[in-house]
Design a protein around this nucleic acid. Sequence first.
DNA 1: CATATGACGATGC
DNA 2: CGCATCGCCATAT
Length: 130
Amino acid sequence: MARSDEAEAFFHAVYTAVQEIPHGKVTSYGHIAKLIGTPQRPRQVGVCLKHLSHDPQSRFNNTTVPWQRVINSKGIISPRSQPTGTLNQAAALEAEGVTVTTGALGELMVDLADYGWFPSILPSEEGMED
DNA sequence: CATATGACGATGC
DNA sequence: CGCATCGCCATAT
């Protein structure tokens, strides 16, 4: 157990919330952060996905967690370090029926008005493990 | 252990 | 309404 329980709970919360995203829909890092009760840490949500295990044996990995459905609040796929991953994410989204538009600068945009998934935040619903 | 960085977001101007 | 800066905090070096 490398990470503390608190961090592990955060990771778990993020992955679980991401799995709640319906097929063919997308949401933002900030919204995920709000859903799990930490609206001040949208960056950490990205960290969780970056650390997402590639091990098919793991409970949460890049196959069981639809990380591709998580983009930034601008409706643009976050241009991380390499364009390959970004393009891979766009391809995965299109495979689900999500239309991805390529901007003049090569930014991959998704129409949040059509594919955005922003459920109401009910504290008694997400934070019910009391 | 101190500094830098990042798959973000809000705010200032 | 686009760009600069700050805040947030786990990881990396």
